[in-house]
């Protein structure tokens, strides 16, 4: 399915299969899990979490420095 996520605040469309995990999504959009913080419907979730077709997914890349 063609799915809409936000990556660092910008909308992006991704093609994902029916049962896709956050980990698989990150691979699809070439974002390393080591620099990713992912929210599903406003809550932080780990990479094993599955994505449903009505879920709101936001991916944030952790920036270096701080």
């Amino acid at each position: 399915m063609n799915f809409s996520i936000t990556l660092n605040g910008k909308v992006r469309r991704v093609d994902i299969k029916g049962r896709t995990s956050i980990a698989e999504l990150l691979k699809k959009i070439s974002v390393s899990r080591e620099v990713a913080l992912v929210k599903k419907n406003g809550k932080i979730v780990p990479e094993g979490e599955l994505i449903g077709k009505n879920d709101k997914i936001e991916v944030f890349q952790v920036v270096y420095g701080g």
Partner: peptide, 14 residues
């Protein structure tokens, strides 16, 4: 939903 390994609650991190 992924569960906490310690308490079964909703996990936030792996």
């Amino acid at each position: 939903v992924v569960s906490c390994s310690k308490c079964g609650g909703e996990a936030v991190i792996n």
